[in-house]
């Protein structure tokens, strides 16, 4: 997975989002050890302090756990992982309806479009 950073938002937030997606997509699975801050920073081509900030945000979201012996690992708490996955999905759905609304579709019409596509 490539790191993509856009120009106008804080870099650490974008790193945090992309790490979250990587974890939820199973790139790093539950209980797996994450690479070191420095390695991740090099991979993304960013400042290690910025990567550190993104990882600390994952810690405080409960998505990763840092302990002395193992370093930083992905949480094994399925409730947190599922909750996170659901809230990401929610965001995608919201985006879909917003974009549809921009094109002039009501929520119902947009739902109809979705269903039609399915069949």
């Amino acid at each position: 997975m490539e790191w993509k950073l856009d120009d106008n938002r804080p870099i650490w937030i974008q790193l945090q989002e992309q790490l979250t997606r990587k974890i939820l997509a199973g790139w790093y699975h539950a209980g797996e050890k994450l690479p070191s801050v420095r390695d991740l920073a090099t991979e993304a081509g960013v400042n290690p302090n910025t990567m550190q900030r993104a990882l600390a945000a994952l810690d405080s979201a409960g998505l990763t756990v840092t302990n002395r012996t193992m370093g930083r690992t992905v949480t094994e708490d399925q409730i947190i992982l599922e909750g996170m996955r659901a809230s990401l999905a929610e965001g995608i759905i919201e985006q879909f309806f917003d974009s549809a609304a921009e094109l002039g579709y009501t929520k119902e019409q947009a739902m109809e479009l979705l269903k039609r596509r399915e069949s």
Partner: peptide
């Protein structure tokens, strides 16, 4: 800080 600029100004340092 670079990220403070991005956060406050909504634009890159380059801009």
């Amino acid at each position: 800080l670079v990220d403070d600029i991005r956060e406050k100004e909504g634009k890159s340092v380059d801009e």
